[in-house]
Design a protein around this nucleic acid. Structure first.
Length: 861
DNA sequence: GACCTGCTGCGGCTTG
């Protein structure tokens, strides 16, 4: 094959930079120059930015072989979208340097929330050749008058980190944005072709769209979603980097498994073992699952290993940005030996000096663990070293499952969202705010997206009604009449409506948080309203790794001063709940089956032998064709324990469902507890479980939805989902920047809307969406069905047990957490419970306790 | 207002 001028220039420039090291770069160049769009599957640190930027440059040079060094442009040629504004600056710098070195007089700019007003207006006057932006900022651009001009010269759009967006509403927003760019881009290219007679190989979609994605279970589908339904299949390419990353994963095995905790999730008992690893490593990242767990670990290390003061830092999403940036910079500068963090450090730039990663507690998913493990040994060819620290005994088996899954290359999928009406409504108003839209034109554009392929014309009609007249229900309220129709053009004429809309573009909603500031000025981060409300002036709490005395709260800010107290509570945040992924759960069940068959391949399984022996002795070790139920009586009542090993969300739904089905035989009220492995039904009456099991309907899928509606407070679940939907759909205004409307008011108004719709317009599309979201995300209906189906084909083993088994114990401890009034720490209560049940293997508060800091894992006082 | 272990991410500054 002839190499074009563009390729020669690029190759010459890139030669010193190890082009040959990444063979996929050549394949990418070829795909791009031949007019393909598609998906590049490459991890961070593989030069993926250049893999797309350089082919684009080569294409440009080919179009202007003699003049490219002087070629002036009057428009945007490349749009680069990333989910993280922090990434835009690094990418911009790298691109700009490349252009400078090649003598190309180009400007690379960013447009995000961080871009100054001056820069934004500069952008409006003269567009750069390359613009780096976020999905939200793209939509803000679409909300500008005469936005088509911005994109009239556009040749390629790159969606970086597509796997992070796919499966979220931000992803849907990207799909909608692309459907518009495709129309604008193709129109302009047709013009270009006529006037300049460009020689392009493909003409249907001259706008190229490329996604960059880490490995996920559904890459092919990821490409489909990105490109939409109308993209010609023969114009799509998948380029795979196929860079094998060597991983060395080791579980930390508690020395005496019989004395290791059966329950719990903090894992501090293994602190000495972890610190041994830290001491031997150059730089270590300790990943925890929650922000409060990071604080707890940081505090414990500082207390027990004071020599780490100054060379250790913490990083999580509620810490001030300035602090987080400092930590990242210090990591790069190799000034830190240890960072305790959450997944906030998952993203972003690579941390080259890191040689060891420690994961405390189950990462709950294969991909998440891979990504974290990959943070260490960040040189091409280097081996990543990651340790898994179980926080309770049985979790050790997850370590074995993780290794197995990684070996078998099992990855989670990101399921694309369908028919997110709230996002669509927002988009429609966005277009109405700028130049307005024609209904039929827009409908056909929207139909090209994967998300709205099944949108019916009548549903679209309902949405049009909704934004123009408020729909059936809200027609009397001016507040909701946003869009007007003039000669078939849907337009927003009110400046107030337009501005409010621009203020609320985006799909990320969050709880109102309180900023924590020193009395002397300077911000530490944010904590939640509910936590602050429990503080009294003079109280001490630990946050951002410091002991703080609460002074007062004023205008959404909690003022604090330094405290010398070594005791204090640690805030916890209400974040998302991460159930065990279905892929990891499946491998976990596989491991359990091996255990039941007496196979002891893994060190983890060997170590757990005493625990499994006890489980077998007291009850049973289920094989893969068996389903274990344990029945047990105590002074609290009748306990039933079920073990689907399917993740806690599914267990929550299944527990309510089965409780409901039992109560049809004999009325009773149940209390429910669950973890990722199973769930417990507890009632003070005798449960007719044998009778229930004889009925084939017990685990049946028949009447599933109906029974779920009866057994769970489906209304309440939908009402909670509706709150976010109402925000995104623009039904409530969250206030001007800096003066947010009180949470309680918003709560009340979305709740009211939910009721009004439910009563007068039950077929309302947003209400329907709320129920669907509750079913899909809260209940994981799909997994619930699959689990029920599996159980139906299994042999049910019902064991009457004398006392809690190793499987049962952690679940029953879980239910302790819900008791409202107690002054004991969880640890004390576990110990007490262990004594009262005579359960073996439950550690008394260990001898290490004297070294431990005065942390109680309690919320509030 | 509910959650009780629970991550991450963006954007906007003027009307009525």
């Amino acid at each position: 094959m002839m190499t074009s001028k563009g390729q020669q220039v690029i190759q010459q420039w890139y030669r010193e930079k190890n082009w040959e090291q990444f063979p996929f770069q050549a394949e990418m160049m070829d795909a791009y120059l031949n007019g393909y769009s598609g998906l590049l599957n490459a991890p961070t640190g593989s030069g993926k930015t250049f893999a797309l930027f350089l082919p684009f440059l080569a294409g440009f040079i080919n179009q202007h072989p003699d003049t490219f060094k002087t070629q002036q442009n009057n428009g945007l040629l490349m749009l680069w979208i990333t989910p993280l504004r922090a990434l835009t600056n690094d990418i911009r710098k790298a691109m700009q340097e490349a252009c400078n070195e090649m003598g190309l007089p180009w400007r690379i700019m960013t447009r995000t929330g961080d871009t100054s007003a001056a820069e934004k207006s500069a952008l409006k006057k003269k567009l750069p050749e390359v613009l780096l932006t976020t999905p939200e900022s793209l939509h803000l651009m679409l909300a500008q008058k005469e936005y088509p001009k911005l994109f009239s010269q556009l040749q390629v759009v790159v969606i970086d980190e597509w796997h992070e967006l796919l499966g979220t509403k931000r992803g849907v927003q990207v799909e909608l944005g692309l459907s518009k760019l495709k129309v604008l881009g193709s129109k302009s290219e047709v013009l270009n072709q006529k006037s300049k007679d460009l020689e392009l190989k493909s003409h249907d979609f001259p706008l190229k769209i490329w996604g960059i994605s880490a490995t996920i279970g559904n890459l092919e589908q990821a490409a489909e979603v990105l490109l939409g339904n109308d993209f010609p299949k023969e114009q799509i390419r998948m380029v795979r980097a196929n860079l094998e990353k060597k991983l060395d994963i080791r579980s930390i095995i508690p020395q005496n498994i019989e004395n290791y905790s059966w329950a719990g999730h903090i894992g501090l008992k293994l602190l000495p073992e972890v610190m041994e690893i830290v001491a031997k490593s150059k730089t270590t990242l300790i990943f925890t699952n929650t922000r409060s767990q990071s604080e707890i670990w940081y505090h414990a290390i500082l207390d027990n290993y004071p020599e780490y003061a100054g060379i250790m830092a913490m990083h999580h999403g509620s810490l001030d940005n300035e602090l987080r940036n400092w930590v990242e910079a210090a990591l790069h500068a190799e000034a830190l030996k240890l960072v305790v963090c959450t997944s906030s450090l998952d993203l972003g730039v690579d941390f080259r000096p890191v040689d060891t990663v420690v994961q405390v507690g189950s990462p709950k998913g294969v991909a998440r663990f891979m990504q974290r493990a990959g943070r260490s040994g960040h040189h091409p060819g280097a081996t990543s070293l990651a340790y898994f620290v179980p926080t309770h005994s049985l979790e050790l088996l997850e370590g074995a499952a993780l290794k197995e899954a990684i070996k078998a290359k099992i990855f989670e999928s990101r399921d694309p969202l369908l028919l997110a009406m709230d996002v669509l409504i927002q988009y429609m108003v966005t277009l109405a705010v700028s130049d307005g839209f024609k209904a039929e034109e827009l409908f056909s554009e929207i139909k090209t997206t994967y998300a709205f392929a099944d949108l019916s014309r009548s549903e679209f009609g309902q949405l049009l009604d909704f934004i123009t007249t408020g729909g059936k229900t809200l027609a009397q309220y001016d507040e909701f009449l946003k869009v007007e129709v003039e000669n078939g053009l849907y337009k927003v004429n009110s400046r107030r409506v337009a501005m409010r809309h621009r203020l609320s573009i985006g799909t990320i909603t969050s709880e109102l948080s309180i900023r924590v500031k020193w009395l002397s000025g300077g911000s530490l981060g944010t904590i939640e309203e509910s936590f602050v409300s429990k503080l009294k002036p003079g109280n001490t709490f630990w946050f951002a790794g410091r002991s703080l005395e609460f002074v007062r709260v004023k205008e959404m800010t909690a003022y604090v001063k330094k405290s010398n107290s070594t005791k204090g509570i640690i805030p916890s945040w209400n974040g998302g709940r991460m159930p065990l992924s279905s892929q990891l759960a499946a491998v976990f069940r596989l491991k359990l089956d091996e255990v039941a068959h007496g196979l002891e391949r893994d060190v983890e399984v060997k170590a757990l032998k005493p625990l499994f022996d006890l489980q077998q002795k007291l009850s049973h070790l289920p094989q893969s064709h068996e389903f274990l139920i344990e029945s047990f009586k105590s002074k609290e009542g009748h306990h039933l324990l079920f073990y689907p090993f399917e993740g806690r969300l599914v267990h929550e739904g299944m527990a309510s469902l089965l409780a409901y089905r039992i109560s049809k035989i004999k009325p009773a009220s149940f209390s429910i507890a669950m973890n990722d492995y199973g769930f417990e039904l507890l009632t003070d009456e005798d449960i007719p479980i044998e009778e229930a099991l004889e009925d084939s309907a017990f685990f049946s899928l028949d009447n599933l939805i109906d029974d779920i509606q009866h057994s769970l407070n489906a209304n309440e679940m939908a009402r909670r989902k509706f709150r976010d939907i109402a925000h995104i759909g623009g039904l409530v205004f969250t206030g001007y920047p800096g003066q947010q409307i009180k949470n309680k008011h918003l709560q009340a108004s979305t709740s009211l809307l939910f009721e009004v719709f439910s009563e007068y317009e039950p077929d309302n599309l947003l209400i329907r969406q709320a129920y669907n979201e509750a079913l899909a995300f809260q209940l994981e209906e799909f997994r619930l069905r699959a689990a029920l189906q599996r159980i139906q084909s299994q042999n049910i083993i019902l064991k009457v047990i004398e006392r809690p088994t190793p499987f049962a114990f952690p679940i029953m401890v879980d239910s302790l957490g819900r008791e409202k009034l107690t002054t004991e720490t969880l640890e004390e209560r576990i110990a007490k419970m262990a004594r009262s049940y005579g359960a073996e293997g439950v550690a008394e508060p260990a001898e290490r306790k004297s070294r431990k800091p005065g942390i109680t894992r309690k919320k509030g006082f």
